[in-house]
Each structure stands twice: as structure tokens, then as C-alpha cells.
Design a protein around this nucleic acid. Structure first.
Length: 585
RNA sequence: GCGCCAAUAGCUCAGUUGGAUAGAGCAACAGCCUUCUAAGCUGUGGGUCAGAGGUUCGAAUCCUCUUUGGCGUACCA
């Protein structure tokens, strides 16, 4: 449709200009807007003409009629049907061209159909997930992962070279808390001895610290001492830290595998904080920062309308900000990027504002290429997730539950015989449900995670989308057994003239634009909405009209070809959203 | 207090960047399986787009104010 849009924009614009000069209208013409009519019967392109009424001193409808007449009488223009509705001039384009081009493109590009060149030759680093090594992943991380993973795929689809990086928060006062509690109360428990997954075991001691702190509030001092020791390289402390760290990482990686989250590179704060410290001290020498009497180092943010911010503690240890400074610099040294996107909760908007400013002050010109993709919180129907009240939704638990439900569903529908591996299929369904649920909502908005709704597989859900792909796949299997009979039947797109077919052709042709828009706005939910619209349209079409049992061989071939195109668009959309494609379910 | 963000059907969310009668899913009710997978399809009911002004031929969309909610404003991360 892209071609048709440009063509008709230029035609209508040209005729408007001619009308203006004939009516000796001096003023500049408002830019012409192109829209989509609300209904299929109203054509495919719409030009609202209200903006010109004043200029031409004519009713918009009359302008539309005049344009229609002029265009129809001009032999140089393509002969398409023009319709006037009120102040709109609508065009019903010859969809045969659109359909042929769509089929050609999809056959040629296959899994690359929809890809564009918006970010060609651009290197974009995407940071996401960034767990602490003191507890297992929860629902908030799952949203982060889903967005990070999807955004990376979307940027790649737009031609960018993407490096997905994870930054492990494996140092700091919070890590020392779980270490201290472990030291005090564990009696040498290990994942092997307890049978508890490593990240959950460490998490158990992080929770225990809070309990210990209630009994003895001074315990925090011990944790602070431990951090000091850690930064000084104390052997015993480092040994415990390494061990607990390994346990957590093993557990986290298991969860990543289950959720199909992958990274190209891992950074560890334990390895980057020192550089941050150096840079802060360097900035102090250069007079960018200043030192308080107690020895702490600060930056004054008055020039960007903010307060003062501490960069290094009075005892010399690093802060969150310190290590992020080091990490950013190291990253740019390692892999000079055109842009870096931090997928981090919106609560940290202030932190990133400061971070980017500090880097700019330190003279890094690429600080302007850093971008914080701030996503909203995940709340429960009753309110916030609170670890103290035990309302945090654990990632492993949730996936487990969803998988069990999917197994139950498969059994209830008696699909076991049709499915190769029930467990794998159930896991794929669970993952599809989860990722789609999380990516339906615009990232920057807070969202409510309703457990009951998230485990429903009906309606606007991941499994509904997967189901479309599975049914088409089933159709394709059926067709392949009789494919030879259709070898010599040519594809006649002009047979696809139902309103539903026209809508499908148009919507499928829009896919590349949707992929581009999702990248421009860093918003996977644009793909979700599109995919759901396409699914509903297709679902109705295929419910109402026979494909393989259409009345003639030619019609079967034409409809079958369209269905295959739709499947490719489905599959490419799934890939961008982390919804596994299933041949059968 | 100051800063950032949000508010659309009972609930969860869309809304083509200012256009035609504001749409889906869930929940409720009523239909459709000897038929390409019923994880589906169809229909009914449900709206002061938080409120008030303003800009405009036209506002859920842009501006101002108000209300309500969230987040931030840590030598936590």
C-alpha cells in the first residue's frame, strides 16, 4: 500500500495546487493528510479536506467533488474508484497490485518479511534484566526481560546491529546482607544439601537478614563493615561472596533458559565499579566534582535544575551511580555504539538523568546517545507487590503454574495424540501466554497483573494467537498431500475479492510499517495490537469461508496462497514478541 | 513542598500522532461443533473518554487550571 499511498498523495496534492492557482488563492496550502477510512466499503485511502474550506471559500464536500471530477477526467491518472463522503475524498485502489506485491515479497523474504533499514549500520546496545544476586527473579524482571528481548528483536528487524547485555548487580550493601545472614545462620547449607535452587536459597538468606535486623537493628553496621572488607579484597569475604554468587547465577540462568531470554554479553558490577571510582576521582581533580568535609564526593546539578548528588561515600566505597558510570565507559570502549538503551523501571528515571549528565560533564560526547527506556511497575489487583508481605510473584513459580495449566488444557481438549511432545508444547504455550500478557501494555504504563486472567487461554491471549498459527499449519499439512493436483493452477489474486480478503491483504501489507513504528517508539505493544487485529480478522474469515474446500481449484489456490502469507506474518510477529510458534497445539 | 508520569465500559487494555458512529478481551446474557483444530465464531447490553475552561471547521488526542492515583526527590539498588 506504500506505493499507492505515495502515488495518491502526490495526485491529490497536485490537483489541490492547480485548484488554488486557478482560484488565485495566494496563501500556503495546509499539508495534505492521508488516512484510513473506518470501513472497508468506504475505500482504502481517505483525504480529509476540511482544512481547505476556508482557503477556497467552499464547503469541504464541494472540494471533494471537484477533485473527484478533475482526477477522473485526467487521462494520466490510474483509473481507480473515487468516493466522496462528506468532506472526504476516498480512493478504492486496485488491490490486485497490492496483493501480488505482497505475495511476491513474502515468498522472497520469508522470515525477513517486515524488516526494514531504519537503523541500518547502527550499533545499538540494549541493557536489560540486570538482576541482583541476592534473590530469584520475580514478575517485575519478567516484564523487563520481555520488553528487553522484544525491543532487541524489533531493532534488529530494522537493520540495527544489536548487542544484548546484562549487568549483574553482584556487589553492594544488599549483597552483603544475604552473605551476613548466611554466615550467621546457615550451618553450611548448600543448594545440593537442601535441594533448593541456588537463587532461591540465597534469597532465603536475604529475607532472613531482614528478620535478624528486626531483632537487632545494629546488624546493618556489620553489613557495612563487610562491604568495606569486600572492597579491600578480604579473602574470606570474597570466597563466601563468590560461592553464593555462583549459586544465584546458576539459578538465574536456568530461569533465563526457560523464558528463552538470551544475552550476548554479561557485565558484572564487581568488575566495573573500580573504573567508576577512578573516573569520579579524576573528575574531582578536574574540578567537575567537589569533596565534602567528611570525604564524600559530590556533583552539583544546579545547571539542570536538580539538587546535589553523592558519587562516592565518605568511607570511599562505591554507589549505584558510581558503578553505572564505570559500566557505561567500559561498554563504549569495548563496543563503540551509536546508541545504548537501558531497559530499567521508571522509578529510576532520576538516576539516569543524573548518570547521563555526569557522563556528559566528564566529557563523553556519546552521553547524548544514551536512552532510558522506562517501563512502569507491575502491580497486583490488590496493590503493590511487597516482599515483606510475601505478595511477590516468583518467576519460576509462575512459569511452573502456567505450564501445568497448559498441560491440563491439552488433556482436556484431547490433543495429546496430535502433539509430539506435550511438555514442550505446554511450556511453549505458557511462555506465549506470559510474554503476550506482558507486552500487550505500552511499556511506560504501570500495569496490573491479574493472576486469574493471566492463566486464561481464551480471548485476547498468547495461546489464542498461537492457535491461529497451529490451525494454518494443520491446513498446510492437509494441502501438501494433494499439492501435485495444484501444481499447474496459477494464483489469481483477482479471485480474492471478498471484503475480508481485501482487509487481510491490506493489513498484511502494513506489517513492515508496524515493525518500523514499534522501533521508532520502542514499543512492542504496537506489534501486539497489530497481531491481535490480524488474528481476529483472519479468524472470522476462516470461520466463514472454506479454504481447502472452496468451490474451485483456482479459488483454493488463491485462498491457500493468502493464508500462507498470513501465516508468515504471524510467525514474524511472534518472533518479535517472544511467542513460540507451534505447528500444532 | 518540588519534579516526573498516569486517569477511556464493572475489570484489564487499544485508540492509526487532531478527523467519519470511541473499540477489543474478560465478566453477564443468547446462539453456533456429523463441517479446514470450539484455545474458535456470531449476537445483546454496558461510555459525562476524571472535571472545568481554551485553541480549532473538528479534541479521548494539543494548551491551562483543578481533582485523584503512582513514582521519585537516600552516603539503598
Amino acid at each position: 500500500m506504500d506505493y499507492e499511498k505515495r502515488l495518491w498523495l502526490s495526485i491529490v496534492e497536485k490537483e489541490l495546487k492547480i485548484m488554488a492557482s486557478e482560484g488565485s488563492v495566494e496563501a500556503e496550502l495546509a499539508p495534505l493528510t492521508l488516512q484510513k477510512p473506518p470501513k472497508e466499503e468506504m475505500g482504502d485511502l481517505a483525504f480529509p479536506l476540511f482544512a481547505y474550506a476556508k482557503l477556497f471559500k467552499t464547503a469541504p464536500e464541494k472540494i471533494a467533488l471537484e477533485l473527484k471530477k478533475r482526477i477522473e477526467n485526467n487521462g494520466n491518472y490510474p483509473k481507480e474508484e473515487l468516493l466522496v463522503f462528506g468532506g472526504y475524498l476516498n480512493v478504492k485502489v486496485d488491490l490486485n497490485f497490492v496483493a501480488n506485491r505482497l505475495i511476491e515479497n513474502v515468498i522472497r523474504e520469508k522470515e525477513n518479511f517486515g524488516n526494514g533499514e531504519l537503523y541500518k549500520n547502527k550499533r545499538i546496545m540494549v541493557e536489560f534484566s540486570c538482576p541482583n544476586t541476592n534473590k530469584p527473579l520475580h514478575l517485575g524482571h519478567l516484564r523487563n526481560d520481555a520488553i528487553g528481548q522484544s525491543i532487541s528483536s524489533i531493532l534488529k528487524a530494522n537493520g540495527a546491529e544489536v548487542l544484548k547485555v546484562n549487568l549483574i548487580n553482584n556487589r553492594g550493601i544488599h549483597i552483603c546482607k544475604s552473605m551476613l545472614a548466611y554466615q550467621m545462620t546457615s550451618e553450611g547449607e548448600t543448594p545440593a544439601s537442601s535441594g533448593i535452587k541456588g537463587d532461591h536459597l540465597v534469597g532465603k538468606y536475604y529475607v532472613r537478614f531482614n528478620e535478624l535486623e528486626k531483632e537487632d537493628p545494629t546488624i546493618i553496621i556489620k553489613a557495612q563493615q563487610m562491604l568495606k572488607k569486600w572492597e579491600e579484597g578480604d579473602v574470606e569475604t570474597l570466597k563466601l561472596w563468590q560461592q553464593m554468587n555462583d549459586w544465584t547465577m546458576e539459578g538465574l540462568k536456568e530461569t533465563y533458559e526457560k523464558t528463552a531470554v538470551e544475552f550476548d554479553y554479561y557485565f558484572y558490577e564487581s568488575e566495573t565499579y573500580a573504573l567508576g571510582k577512578d573516573k569520579v576521582l579524576q573528575g574531582l581533580k578536574e574540578g567537575i566534582f567537589y569533596r565534602e568535609k567528611d570525604g564524600s564526593i559530590w556533583i552539583d546539578l544546579e545547571d539542570i535544575g536538580l539538587d546535589k548528588k553523592v558519587l562516592l561515600r565518605s568511607d570511599g566505597t562505591s554507589l549505584y551511580l558510581t558503578q553505572d558510570i564505570g559500566t557505561a565507559i567500559e561498554r563504549h570502549n569495548m563496543w563503540p555504539f551509536d546508541s545504548q538503551i537501558y531497559v530499567v523501571a521508571s522509578e529510576q528515571s532520576y538516576h539516569f538523568k543524573v548518570l547521563f549528565h555526569v557522563l556528559e560533564k566528564l566529557g563523553y560526547h556519546w552521553a547524548k546517545d544514551l536512552h532510558h527506556l522506562a517501563y512502569g511497575m507491575v502491580n497486583l489487583p490488590d496493590g503493590k507487590m511487597k516482599s515483606r508481605e510475601g505478595t511477590v510473584v516468583d518467576a519460576d513459580d509462575l512459569i511452573e503454574q502456567l505450564t501445568l495449566l497448559a498441560i491440563g488444557e491439552i488433556k482436556e481438549k484431547e490433543r495429546e495424540a496430535e502433539i509430539e511432545n506435550v511438555n514442550n508444547t505446554a511450556q511453549a504455550i505458557a511462555l506465549g501466554a506470559l510474554n503476550y500478557y506482558l507486552l500487550q501494555v505500552n511499556p511506560f504504563k504501570d500495569m496490573i497483573f491479574n493472576p486469574d486472567e493471566s492463566i486464561s487461554f481464551n480471548g485476547n491471549t498468547g495461546p489464542y494467537l498461537q492457535y491461529m498459527g497451529a490451525r494454518i499449519s494443520s491446513m498446510i499439512r492437509k494441502f501438501s498431500s494433494q499439492e501435485k493436483e495444484f501444481e499447474n493452477v496459477s494464483v489469481k489474486v483477482e479471485l480474492l475479492n471478498l471484503a475480508e480478503e481485501r482487509s487481510l491483504i491490506k493489513l498484511a501489507s502494513e506489517f513492515p510499517l508496524v515493525v518500523q513504528q514499534a522501533a521508532e517508539e520502542l514499543n512492542p505493544s504496537i506489534i501486539s495490537t497489530y497481531l491481535y487485529d490480524l488474528s481476529r480478522l483472519f479468524s472470522r474469515y476462516y470461520h466463514d469461508y472454506p479454504i481447502l474446500k472452496a468451490p474451485s481449484k483456482e479459488l483454493i489456490k488463491a485462498r491457500y496462497t493468502l493464508v500462507k502469507v498470513i501465516l508468515q506474518v504471524f510467525r514474524n510477529s511472534y518472533a518479535l514478541l517472544g511467542i513460540p510458534f507451534l505447528e500444532s497445539m
